[in-house]
Simulated assay, not measured.
Amino acid sequence: MDEARLYLGATIMLVEDDIELAEMIQSRLEQEGFKVVHEENGLLAATRIQTLQPHLVILDLMLPGLDGFGVCREVRPHYHGPILMLTARGDDPDQIEGLQSGADDYVAKPVHPKVLIARIEALLRRYDQHGPVPSRRIEHGPLAMDATQREVTMGGHKIDLTTAEFDLLWYLSERPGQVLSRDQIYRELYDTKYDGYDRAVDVYVSRIRAKIGGKDEERVVLKTVRGVGYLLAVKESAS
């Protein structure tokens, strides 16, 4: 089955002030069966994203009213769908700041339609709550994750995670105590090869750690194993 058909009718909010580029992207996405809502102004987009709650947002960086970083930071507490950011080619600082602002992925300009569609489908597939999940709930000490509701709590307190953060933490939580390399994470979680340069997972780990904590004396800590990868360390409670 054509992958795009799985998401036939999904609403995408396209935030782009380059009219020619926006028309090209909108036309191609509509050919694939998506419903596209276009907005040029960052301030207006921030309001419309929260009101419309689209299935996915494509967000340019350079926008009138409010730039893409600002839009991302403003909507993240109220919008939990995937955000795909458009960045300048090879502009690593923009990519990192975009991810730190709450974006789930990025595509470099000039945008190749096939690459854009593949990224959109991957994000929608990861965000789909009805996909196959071996277990719907995971608990490690104070950390609890519910895949059906896509909710995370730490010590009973709700933790707000983006789509990408939730997926990565769930993946690590299914394999506590295992050191997982970047190659393995990209291959098994994102169904792609790690190119040696992508910083997305590094940023996700940093953001997750900041939200759930991560000191060595805590019972659950997300660790970076230098030169190897990451692991979720879970200490047994004292009895």
Rank of each mutant, 00 (worst) to 15 (best):
Y186I: 11
G81N: 04
A118F: 06
V15N: 09
A122P: 01
M145L: 15
G227Y: 07
G227S: 10
A200L: 12
E236R: 15
Y79S: 10
A233Y: 12
G90N: 10
M85Q: 08
P110D: 07
D198A: 12
D105S: 11
L169W: 09
P82F: 07
L180T: 13
R5N: 12
A45D: 06
V36Q: 11
P113H: 11
R48I: 05
T163P: 05
Q31A: 09
S101E: 07
A4Q: 11
G70S: 07
R73S: 07
R48S: 01
I120V: 09
Q95E: 05
D2P: 15
V225T: 11
L63K: 11
S181F: 04
K235I: 07
A210R: 14
G65F: 04
C72F: 09
R136K: 10
T224F: 02
Y190T: 08
E188F: 03
Q31S: 13
Y106C: 04
A108F: 02
V220C: 04
L29R: 12
M13D: 01
W170H: 12
V111W: 07
K193T: 15
I96C: 02
L84F: 03
K35T: 09
F69E: 06
R187S: 11
I58Q: 00
G156E: 12
P82Y: 04
G196Y: 06
Y127A: 13
V71K: 10
I12T: 04
H55D: 10
V15F: 00
P82T: 14
I25P: 02
I138W: 06
K35C: 06
G229P: 13
A238C: 11
R73H: 07
W170A: 08
R137A: 12
R125H: 00
V36L: 10
P54H: 07
D91T: 09
N41P: 15
L180V: 14
T192P: 05
R209Y: 06
D198F: 03
P113F: 06
L99E: 04
G81Y: 11
R136L: 01
R119D: 01
D128I: 00
M13V: 05
T47E: 15
Q178P: 00
G68W: 02
S181D: 09
L143S: 11
A10C: 09
E121A: 07
K109M: 01
A200T: 15
C72P: 12
P64M: 13
C72G: 04
M145C: 01
L84V: 08
G156Y: 09
H55P: 00
R119A: 03
H157V: 15
P134L: 07
Q184K: 12
E16Q: 05
G90Y: 03
V107W: 02
Q26G: 13
R199M: 04
S206I: 01
R136E: 00
G65E: 10
R209F: 01
T192Q: 14
L44M: 11
A238P: 02
Q129C: 00
L43S: 10
Y186P: 14
Q53D: 12
Q50E: 14
R182P: 02
D17F: 06
D198T: 13
S135D: 12
E40G: 07
D160E: 13
M24V: 14
D128M: 00
H78G: 01
K114I: 02
G9C: 08
H55Q: 13
R199V: 05
